[in-house]
Write a protein that binds this DNA or RNA. Sequence first.
DNA 1: GACCCCAGTTGAATCGTCTAAATCGCCATG
DNA 2: CATGGCGATTTAGACGATTCAACTGGGGTC
Lengths: 338, 338
Amino acid sequence: MGTPSIKEVAQRAGVSVGTVSNFLNRPGIVAPETRKRVQDSIQALGFVRNEAARHLRAGKSRTVGLIVLDVTNPFFTDLAEGAEALAYEHDTVVMLCNSKTDPVREGHHLDQLEQQRVMGILITPFDSTDPRLTALVDRGTPVVLVDRTADRGLCSVSVDDQLGGRLAGNHLIESGHRRIAFIGGPFTMQQVADRKAGITAIVEETGDVDLEHYEVDVMGVVEGRAIGEQLAALPARSRPTAAFLANDLLALGFLQGMAVAGLRVPRDMAIVGYDDIDFARAAAVPLSSVRQPAELLGRSAMELLQEEVESAERHRHRQVIFQPDLIVRESSDFKRRR
Amino acid sequence: MGTPSIKEVAQRAGVSVGTVSNFLNRPGIVAPETRKRVQDSIQALGFVRNEAARHLRAGKSRTVGLIVLDVTNPFFTDLAEGAEALAYEHDTVVMLCNSKTDPVREGHHLDQLEQQRVMGILITPFDSTDPRLTALVDRGTPVVLVDRTADRGLCSVSVDDQLGGRLAGNHLIESGHRRIAFIGGPFTMQQVADRKAGITAIVEETGDVDLEHYEVDVMGVVEGRAIGEQLAALPARSRPTAAFLANDLLALGFLQGMAVAGLRVPRDMAIVGYDDIDFARAAAVPLSSVRQPAELLGRSAMELLQEEVESAERHRHRQVIFQPDLIVRESSDFKRRR
DNA sequence: GACCCCAGTTGAATCGTCTAAATCGCCATG
DNA sequence: CATGGCGATTTAGACGATTCAACTGGGGTC
C-alpha cells in the first residue's frame, strides 16, 4: 500500500536491510552487482527515503527554519535566497516562515520548529531580546539573528544601519538640502532607530541643518503616501526639501504622494529610500536607496549556524556586521543652490 | 544532554511512559493528581515533543507543502494566508516553498516534501501536466493544483480567467472605449491566454470595437513601463484609449509610463489591471483591477486536500472554480463620450 | 466470599532507518 | 591443512512517541 520501506526493497533485491542502507549511504562498500540489484529494486518499487525515520534515528534534522517579518518584502526573499543557496550545498532544507511582524505568529512558528527538532533557526525577530530565543538555545536549538545585532548571547548578522542613515544624510546635505525629513517607524524597532541615529549624527556634525521626524506604525506603501500628501500640503516655505525614508515601500508611497500633489521629484522634494528593492529602480522616478547585501546576509547567517552546529560545545557566538551602500538615482540627483 | 524524552519525563514523575503519552494525547483519562505530577515534570525538564518520532509512529505527517511561483507576489502570500488559516485550525503546519517559476527548483521541492512524507502538497505548478505530479499521487502523496485547472486526474482550485477578461472588457466598452489594448504574456501561459480570450469574446460580441494585443516575456513593472512609453509615443489619433493588463505589476509600470510621457489617467488612457494587489490601490492613480479571491483560493485548496486525505480510497477528484470581481477605481473611472 | 467492573496505569511492540558488531566466504600464506 | 585477513553482508539493537492488551486494586453486587 503506502510507500515501500527499505525492508521491502531489501526483500525484492534479495538482500538484508543493512545492505540497502549501505547502498544509500555508503555505496562504495557495496559490491557492484549487489548495487545494481538494489538500484533496480528501488526503481521498481518507487522507494523514497523516509526523512522522519532518518531524523529520529540520527537525532538531528536536516532542515533549518527561517522566520522573516514579511515574505512579500523583496529584501527578505533575497535574504532567503542567500540562505537557501548555502543550505542547498550542504544538502539541507530551508523552511520559510512568515511572522508578519506578529509576535504571536512568531511564537507559533518557533514552537513548531522546535518540535520538529530543526537543525537551527534563522530569525528576524520582532524583539531581539525576547527570552524565548535564548531559552530555545538553552534547550539545544541554535538560533542566529538576522538583520539584527545580538549581544553576546547569540550569533547574529546585520548591516550597519547607523552607517546607512549617515550615508543617506550625507548625500542629501552635500546636495545642498538644509531641511530634511526622516520618516519611519515604529521608532522602537532597532533598525529604524539606528537609521535615525545615523542621519541625526551627521546632521549634528554638520550644523545648520534641520531634521524633522515623522513616525509611522507600519512601513508600507499606503503609509508613505499619506505622509507624502501631508508634507505636500505644507506651504513650500515650511516644507522639507528632502526626505529619507526607512524603507523603500514607504519611499514609493511617498513618491506617489508627491505625484498626486503635483510636486516634482527631485526638484521640489528629493527622496532617498532604504533596501534598494527592484521596484525602487523601476519607479516613475527611479529611487535613490541605501542597499543592503540581502543575499550575503542570508548566506552568512546560514554559515554561522552551520559553524555553531558543527563546533557545538566550544562555539563562541559571533556578531557579523556588513556595510550598506548608497545607490544614487534620479529621485535625489539634483543640486540645490544654497 | 539534548532535549529530554518522554521517558525522562516519566521517570521524574514516577510513572510509565504510557501515562505520559496519555497525558499528552488523552488528558481526560489520567487521574488529576497524576496529571499534575506529569505536568510539573514536563515543566521542570523543558520537555518538547519530538515531531519526527510522532510522525514515524503515526505513519503520517502533520505538515503540508505549499509551492508557489513567486513568494514576493502578494497574490501568492494572500493565498498562503488562506491555506495557513485552515491548517492552523486542524493543527497542521504549512511549509512554504518558492519555486520562482523554475522547474528545477520546483522538482527539488517536490522531492524534499515527498521525503518528508508530508500530508499533501498544494502547488501552483510551472506545468500543470507534469507527470511528476501524478506520479507523486500514485505513490501516495495527495496533490492539489492551485490557481490552475486540472483535468480529471487531480483536485484543483482556480479562478475563471475568461470571466475576468470579460469583466474588464465589458467595463471598458461600457465606459465608451472603442479602441482597447490587451497587454500580457507570454500568451502561452494558460492564465494569460484565458484572460485574453475573455476580453476578445466580449469585444467580438459587441462589434465596432478594436482590440490590439501586445505580448511581453515577463509580467513585471519594467516591461509595463516600456509598453506604456511605446503607446504614449503614438499620435493620440491612432492610440488606444484604454488598456487591460494581465497583471497589476504590468499595469503599475504602464501607469508610470503614462506619467512620464505626460498622459493623464484615466482621461487620456484608462487602465485596468489584474490581481488587485495592495499596491494597486495605493498607486499614484488608484488602479482598477480584477480581483481574485486569493485567500479563499488557498483555503479551498487546503479543504480539498484534507478531504482527500480523510476519504482516502473513495475520493473523487474535484475541480473548484471561483469567480473574479472587477474593482473599479480612478484609473478607469471616466465616461468617454462616443 | 466469589465475582465482576472500572478507572487508572503499565509494558511491550511498533514505525523506518542507521550503525556497530558479528558473521560469512573466499583467498593467500606459511 | 590451518590460520589469518579482508571484503561483503547480515544481525541486532537503538531513536522517541504511540497504542493496545494486560494488569492492578478498590468497590459494589449477589
